[in-house]
């Protein structure tokens, strides 16, 4: 197992390397001048030049790239062009918030999506099935920011259950969770639609399998058929969907973090984009790519946990 994980992580190095290169180049060919963005339109030519010199922006791109890679191998993502703080530090500060948001969203996606999918499958073509399928279609078609705003209007302003601004204040665990629920729910609702659909079709497939008939022939009651015999098998495609849409989740987290005014990678990305903070942006891309890679690895490990036929080699 440990050996497998190490192998997998090593094998992602070329992927990461490719992503880094693309990100590095794209940021630099995008229009906009960091010196101008940071120092303002009124800055003197000397000041602009001095800034560019200090940040290495006057060097040829290949030299900048080499410096970037050198830093990376020594574990540094450079320092922010704007604030001067190390990029690892500013990312490290907000990363836990995005992680808890993403996993909270997956949590809601699974605990709502899987039961709905199962109910839909069991009452296939019944009115409940149609109802859930229409709702999930709506969930898919609704933009994430709209769902978030509706949730705030409804649960925060109308019913006053959750805070409008979900910035955790004190460091307490309960406070963290309380402030997490609404953003995670709004982000999770996107997952619900995908998970529900895959749970439904996986369940329908599994319920038609021979081993379900065997379990019925043993006299296993309906509850046990569904939760023990069928669900374990249906989980395999569900795990795939969760892993696959994790990337989508990170993308949508940007909007969620802005709407709920939460610290996080998404907010940091938008901020650094506006400021043309090359170094921070690069660092953020590295971390996002790494997250996706790790989630893929976790997905594969989950397969092996759910399905004994899968061997991690």
């Amino acid at each position: 197992m440990a050996r497998y994980i190490i192998q997998r992580l090593l094998s992602t190095i070329p992927t990461l390397f490719g992503i880094l290169t693309i990100v590095f180049v794209m940021i630099r060919i995008a229009p906009g001048d960091p010196a101008l963005a940071i120092l303002g339109d009124n800055a003197s030519q000397e000041a602009l030049n001095a800034f560019r010199e200090r940040m290495g922006l006057n060097d040829p791109m290949i030299v900048q790239y080499w410096d970037f890679l050198k830093g990376l191998f020594s574990g540094s993502l450079g320092t922010s062009m704007v604030t001067g703080t190390p990029v690892t530090e500013s990312i490290g500060e907000v990363l836990p918030f995005t992680l808890e948001l993403a996993f909270g969203a997956i949590f809601f996606g699974v605990i709502i999506g899987v039961p709905l999918g199962i109910i839909s499958a069991l009452w296939r073509n019944g009115w409940l099935d149609y109802f859930f399928r229409v709702v999930s279609l709506l969930g898919l078609s609704f933009p994430a920011f709209l769902t978030a705003i509706l949730l705030i209007l409804w649960l925060s302003i109308e019913w006053r259950i959750f805070p409008v601004i979900s910035t955790p204040t004190s460091g307490g665990l309960w406070d963290r969770i309380y402030n997490l629920i609404l953003p995670a729910l709004s982000l999770g609702l996107i997952m619900v639609a995908y998970i529900m659909r895959s749970a439904r079709s996986a369940m329908l497939d599994v319920l038609g399998e021979d081993y379900i008939r065997t379990a019925r022939a043993k006299g296993a009651p309906g509850r046990r058929l569904i939760w023990h015999h069928a669900l374990r098998n249906a989980l395999i495609p569900i795990v795939t969907v969760v892993g696959l849409y994790f990337g989508l989740l990170i993308g949508n987290a940007v909007l969620t973090e802005i709407i709920f005014n939460r610290p996080g990678l998404g907010k940091l990305i938008v901020l650094s984009l506006n400021q043309r903070d090359y170094t921070t942006l690069q660092g953020l891309m590295v971390v996002s790519a790494l997250m996706i890679v790790i989630v893929n690895l976790l997905t594969d490990i989950c397969y092996a946990l759910v399905d004994p036929r899968v061997k991690l080699k």
Partner: peptide, 26 residues
């Protein structure tokens, strides 16, 4: 409910396809 009591206890059944008739994850 009554059938569940009889199935597997007083009447049992085995099937044609041993490859697919056993639950792969148990």
């Amino acid at each position: 409910r009554e059938l569940e009591d009889v199935r597997g206890s007083r009447i049992a059944m085995i099937f044609q396809e041993p490859m697919t008739s056993l639950n792969p994850v148990l």
